[in-house]
């Protein structure tokens, strides 16, 4: 009995998730997408997060830096979590910017969070013609009020984007400048 339980323990701790260090410097996120970071980050290597990569500074329940590395035409933007009844959000290469931002809004409201777009503007991202947007969210699961910023561009029919959100108290202001700096270093090849 005890052996069985220890096996369960091992499985659940080692099988589920891990956190990897992302070192300071230039990081190649994929074939075509590179960013440079100053100071290390933590990457949450959880099996359920795809298609995004998730990085954090303060922890899984506090802040998220989401990296979308070349989402293809027809690809689902949200992870396959939830009860299966919820709507999936699919990227189309024909989408104009305003629809891509609505797509992110959908992805970020999938947990019933209240989402409000604060600003959207053109932004040269990764050397391409892109966009930048700011938003607010209220997580309904725990009532935490978040602020966020996102950057993105479509190139060769693929979507590249970085999103960061954290509690509007303390954490978003603390890390916003770092995130803006990272976005400025992005290169799409």
């Amino acid at each position: 009995m005890r052996g069985l339980l220890l096996a369960v323990l091992a499985l659940s701790v080692f099988g589920c998730a891990s956190v990897k260090k992302v070192e300071s410097g230039t990081n190649r996120l994929g074939e075509r997408f590179t960013i440079s970071i100053e100071g290390a980050w933590n990457q949450l290597d959880f099996p359920g997060v795809k298609p995004a990569q998730v990085w954090t500074m303060e922890g899984v329940t506090v802040d998220e830096f989401l990296i979308f590395n070349g989402i293809r035409d027809g690809e689902v933007m949200n992870s396959k979590s939830g009860n299966g009844k919820q709507q999936d959000f699919v990227f189309r290469k024909s989408m104009p910017t305003e629809e891509i931002v609505s797509l992110f809004e959908g992805v970020l409201s999938r947990d019933n969070a209240v989402f409000k777009l604060i600003k959207i503007e053109p932004y040269p991202f990764g050397g391409k013609k892109g966009f930048r947007f700011e938003y607010e969210r209220i997580r309904k699961t725990d009532n935490v009020q978040l602020r966020g910023v996102g950057f993105g561009a479509v190139d060769g029919g693929d979507l590249f984007a970085l999103l960061y959100h954290a509690p509007r108290l303390t954490f978003f202001p603390r890390h916003q400048a770092r995130v803006e700096a990272i976005a400025a270093t992005a290169v799409i090849r």
């Binding site: 369960v8 589920c16 998730a17 959880f46 359920g48 998220e64 989401l66 979590s81 947990d111 969210r137």
Partner: peptide, 22 residues
């Protein structure tokens, strides 16, 4: 975590809690 890994993370943490408590 909020949007993308929520369900997974909560399943994991539940398993983990259960295992740990035991």
């Amino acid at each position: 975590m909020n949007t993308l890994t929520e369900t997974r993370a909560s399943v994991c943490s539940l398993l983990r809690l259960t295992a740990l408590v035991t």
